[in-house]
């Protein structure tokens, strides 16, 4: 059974004057796939992602996200995706419950649905005892897990994660990846942008952007074979160094 594509980008380009921040990138992401979108700071990752989530209009090229066009159907895109970034996730001055209720509310969930989701989420994460505590008082790892769950609250087709596990301890990080695997197993597509190469190792497929272009796109395993190195970090180093020469 061939799985359907939920993200399709063709020659997608974003230019600022003469500078092409994103230069004709093409790729597909399948349903339930964990797709790593890698690149150094300034390689064009964030610009590309902004086009995909419908908050920045492409200069040229085509792209469909969850079946909707990035030029004309941005409102539909926003309803069908979830977003979690390390910088902005939850409100520190609201409690766990209030955060869940608030985010359920912005996605237009019914009151009953919010209640159901809230209970489910709190029990899944084992937060029963502290659901009335301010999010700001939770350890970083818990915040990130909660924030990921909240980004799934409206059952989106695709979740965009921006450097999700930077700085957390190794155990929490793995618990986090288990959550991602679970979501992917249930059919949610996961789109991870990061410049931490060890996060890339966990993805089904990765693309590496260098100076606005996708320079490599394959499974981590094949990329490592192709570049004859042991880690994604070395793949990246080789790619970036070759470009420099």
């Amino acid at each position: 059974m061939k799985k359907e594509n939920v993200i399709v980008a063709e020659e997608l380009t974003k230019a600022f004057g003469d500078f092409k921040a994103v230069n004709a990138i093409s790729f597909e992401v399948k349903k339930g796939e964990i797709f790593g979108f890698l690149g150094a700071n300034g390689a064009g990752k964030t610009t590309a992602m902004k086009m995909l989530i419908g908050i920045s209009k492409p200069s040229s090229g085509k792209a469909k996200v969850a079946g909707f066009d990035v030029y004309t159907q941005t409102e539909s895109i926003k309803k069908n995706i979830g977003y979690m970034s390390q910088k902005f996730a939850l409100y520190d001055d609201l409690t766990v419950k209030e955060n869940i209720t608030f985010f359920g509310g912005i996605y237009g969930l019914s009151r009953a649905k919010i209640k159901e989701k809230r209970e489910q989420l709190i029990s899944e994460l084992g937060l029963e005892g502290i659901s009335n505590k301010l999010v700001g008082s939770l350890p970083l790892g818990w915040k990130q897990k909660l924030s990921f769950s909240v980004s799934l609250i409206h059952e989106p087709k695709i979740v965009f994660l921006d450097e999700p596990t930077g700085g957390v301890d190794p155990i929490t990080r793995r618990q986090f990846w288990e959550m991602i695997y679970k979501a992917a197993d249930q059919g949610t597509t996961i789109f991870v942008t990061t410049h931490y190469m060890d996060e890339a190792e966990y993805c089904d497929r990765v693309s590496i952007m260098v100076e606005g272009k996708i320079e490599a796109l394959d499974t981590p395993k094949k990329l490592k074979e192709q570049f004859k190195v042991a880690s994604m970090n070395d793949v990246f180093l080789k790619l970036a160094r070759n470009i420099e020469l």
Partner: peptide, 24 residues
């Protein structure tokens, strides 16, 4: 083939000491 299922299955294995995802 399926990472999530693999972890869940291993967690049910009676001789398991620890299982952690580690890249691929």
């Amino acid at each position: 083939d399926n990472m999530y299922k693999l972890i869940q299955t291993l967690k049910g294995y009676k001789h398991l000491y620890s299982v952690f995802p580690f890249g691929e």
